[in-house]
Design a protein around this nucleic acid. Sequence first.
RNA 1: GCCGGGAUGGCGGAACUGGUAGACGCGCCAGACUCAAAAUCUGGUAUCCGUAAGGAUGUGGGGGUUCGAUUCCCCCUCCCGGUACCA
Length: 865
Amino acid sequence: MQELLTDRYEPDKIEPVIQQHWAENAVFKVSEDPSREKFYCLCMFPYPSGRLHMGHVRNYTIGDVISRYQRMLGKNVLQPMGWDAFGLPAENAAIENNVPPAEWTRSNIAYMRAQLERLGFAYDWDRELATCEPDYYQWEQWFFTQLYEKGLVYRDTAVVNWDPVDQTVLANEQVIDGCGWRSGAPVERREIPQWFLKITAYADELLDELERMDDWPEAVKTMQRNWIGRSEGLSIRFALTRGDGELEVFTTRPDTLYGATYMAVAPEHPLAAAAAQSNAEIAAFIEESRHQSTSEAVLEKMEKRGLPLGVSVDHPLTGEPLPVWVANFVLIGYGTGAVMSVPAHDQRDWEFARKHDLPIRQVITPADGSTVDIEAGASADYGILINSGARDGLDFKAAFDSIAGELEAAGRADRQVQYRLRDWLVSRQRYWGCPIPVLYDADGNVVPETDERLPITLPEDIVGEGVVSPLSTMSAFIDAPLPDGGRGRRETDTFDTFFESSWYFSRFCCPDANAMVDERVDYWMPVDIYIGGIEHAVLHLLYARFFHKAMRDVGLVKSDEPFKRLLTQGMVCKETYFRDGANGRKQYFNPGEVDVETDEKGRVTSARLRSDGTSVDIGPVEKMSKSKNNGVDPQALIDRYGADTVRLYTMFAAPPDQSLEWSDSAVEGAFRFLKSLWRMTSEHIAGGVPGPASMTALSPELKTLRRHIHETIVKVSDDISRRYKFNTAIAAVMEMVNHLGRMRGEDDASRAVRQEGLSAAVQLLGPIVPHFSAVLWTGLGHAEELTDSPWPQADENALEREEMDLVVQVNGRKRALIQVAANADKAACEAAAMIDENVLRFTAGKTIRKIVVVPGKLVNVVVAD
RNA sequence: GCCGGGAUGGCGGAACUGGUAGACGCGCCAGACUCAAAAUCUGGUAUCCGUAAGGAUGUGGGGGUUCGAUUCCCCCUCCCGGUACCA
C-alpha cells in the first residue's frame, strides 16, 4: 500500500488496488459469531433497471458509511446486496428490444454489480441474491401454500383496469387520462377473481407495535397509522321505506345521525342496479361509471356526480324518509358500498347537497359556545348535539352510547371496529413474476401445489408481445397434472413484486439454506438499520412488517419486527431545461448539454443549448427522471473524479433524509478538499512520521488546535452514530483540516499535534472515503488496517477549556461578545456583561427591568425607557 | 380530495433541548504566483446605511406566546412524496 502514497492524489490509481485488496482478502465476508455483537445494515435493494442512478449512489453510500463505522466500533457487521429482479419494466424493455425479460434483467444485474463494485461498497457479495431465480422464489411459493393452509390466503374478485383493445389488465401507471397507454382506448373497470393475503388479520398488531418502534421516524409511523386507519363506529341498517330490504352503512359519527338527510350508494350497488331496470338515465350513469379509474387519487379529484334512485329508507330514530342516491364517489369495494350523508358535518356531503338542493341540517354545535356558519361549509369538529330531539346537549361519547344503545336494542345496528387497510391483493396478470403455486381442477376448485412439486418454474426464453401475459396462452405451462392425479389447469397470474421484497432481508441471513430460512436468521435479524426512499413509507414497509409476522407465526423467525431502525432517504434532484415544442409538449434538455450564464453576483440569468447556441427555458428543480431528462449519470463522475469524491459529495451536499440538489461544481469542491488533504498528509509523511510525544507542555496555540481536534472527534462521532448527519460531520473535519493547514510549525510538538490531527481526519473520513483513507492511514504509520482500526476516542484532558464566549444582549439584541472564565457562575457572567462598553451605551439612562443569565450561553439585559 | 413532509444569502446547506441566524462547501469579487492561462494560495462576500466603529432590516406570508422564536401555537400560500397494479 505504501507505493500508492504518491505526491499527487490519483484516485484512478489507488481505488482499483484497494478494492482488489478487499476482495482478495474477503475483508467483508461475515459469518455468525455469537461472542460478538452483530450489526445488520441494509439498504433497499435495487430494481435492475440498467444503470445505477444517483438515488442508488446516495442510498448505498449512506449504508456503507454506517456499516464501516459500526465495524470500527468492533461489531460483526453484515451488509448484503441483491436484486429486486421481477417487475414491469423488464416486460416493456423486452418488447422494445426484442429480448427476453430474463436475459435483459440478468445483463442489467451484471452491469450494475460492476458499478457497485467500482464504488467500493463493503458488501458480503457471497450473499448476493436475485428474486427472479427459482432458488429464491421457490420459498415464497412454499410459504404461500403454508399461509393457504393457515387460512391467511383467499380468493375473491377485485376490480382492475381493463384495456378493451389490447384485451389486457393495465397497471395504474399505464392508464393515462383514463385511456390505455399503448392502445389509447378508454379503460374499463372489470371484476376478476384474484388472490388476497389477510393483512387485516394483523391490523391491530401492526398498529400497536408502532408505539414501541422508537427508532422509526414519526412521519412514517403516522403515515402507517393513518393507512391502517382503525376506527370505531356503528354499522347501521336502514329499512327501505317500501318493500322489506335494508341498506347497511358504517359510520364513525353516529352522533350526527339526526343530521343525515340522504343516503348514497355506489354505482355497482344492487339498489342502483334495481333502479336502472326502469330508469334509462340511471342505467347510463352506471354504464359511464364503468370507465371510472381504480386509482384513489383520480377518483377523489374527479367531479362528484349522482342521481336520485327514486327510493328511500326510514331514519331509524325519527322515521323520516331519506332519499337514496347513486353517487360516483361511493366505492363498492369499501365497506358496504353505501354511506349515510350528513351534509352539515362532512364537507363532501355538504358540496353534494348544495349542488343537488338536498337539505343541510346542523346537529352539532361547538362545546365552547361559539357558533359555526353551516351556510359557508361543513363543520366536522366534535361538539354538543342540537336539533336531535331528546339527545340535545349530549357530547360525542354520550350521544354515541345513547344512539348505539337504542339501535342495538332494536336490532338495527352493531358497534364495529373498521380499518381503512384492505387485504393485500397479490395477483398480477403479468408474465415477469413469480408464478402463484396453485392449480384448478376440472370443476374450477383450487388445488394448492405440494412441497415436492416446487418450484413452479417460470418459463424464461419468452419475449412477449406486449399485450397479454404469455403465460396465459402457454398450454405447456397451464396444462399440468394434479397432485392426486388427473389433469388440472395452472394459475397463470404471478405475484405482486412486493411479495419478493417482503422477505429478502431474512434470506440474506442464510442465502444457501435448504429451506426458506434457517436458524442463522435469528442471529442476524432484526435488521439494525434499514435505509431507503421515503416513497416506501407505507406499502413496502407495511407489507414487509406483515410478512415477517406471518413468517414468525409459521415458526420461521423469532423476532416480531424486521427493522429495528429506519432511515428514510430524500430524493436526488436537478434543475430542468426545456423548450416548448410545436405540439404543445415540452422538450427537455439534459443539464450536461446546457451552458448557464450568470451575472456578476453569480446569479443565473440565462441558459443556452451548447449544440446550437440558442437559449432554453430554465425549469424548476425536480427529482432526476427520464421524463424530465435531468439525470446526471454517476458513472461519468466516477470515471472523472473517482468513487471517493462522488461518495464524499453525496454525503456532504445534504442530510440523508432531505432531498439533495445535485451540483457538478460542488463535486469539484469535494475533489479539491481531498486533493488538499492528500497533499498536506503526504508532505507531513515525507518529513518523517513522528513518534508518540508528550502533549502536556504545549503552547497555547497548539493547545487550542489540539482541543479542536478532539472536539471534532466528539462531533463527528455524534453526527454519525446518533444524528445520521454526515454533511455536518464532513464540515467539521473540513474545518479542522483548515486549522491544521494554517499551523506552520515544524518543531517536534507541532509535528506531533499535526500527526494526531491528520490521523484523526483520515480516520474520521474513513467510512466516507475508504480508499483515500486506507492509503493515508497506512502512510501515517498505523500498523492495523483502517477498516479494522478502532474508532478514535476524544482525550478528556484535551477538551478542557479555560475561557469561553458569552453573548450579551440588550432587549434580545446582540450587543457584545465577551470572554469569561469557563466556570463563571451567574453573578460573574452578569458582572462581566454589565461593564461592557457597548452594553453600557444601550442601557444608559434606562431602567433595568430584568437580567436573564444562561451560564455558558448568554446574558440578556431587559431595559425600558 | 385525503395522509405525510418541506420552504433560511446568488446556490447546496448549518444553527441538535426556545438562547450569537448564515458553520462548511459552491459560485462570485479582489489580490498573489505566471509571459499568459490553468492549477494553487490569501482576503472579502445576507441586504441596506456608514471610510470605519457601529446601526437598521432579515429565516415562504399573516397573527400569537416569550426577556428572547428558523425552532412552540393558530391561519394561509407554494413545492415535494404516497394514495393500494411503477418500484
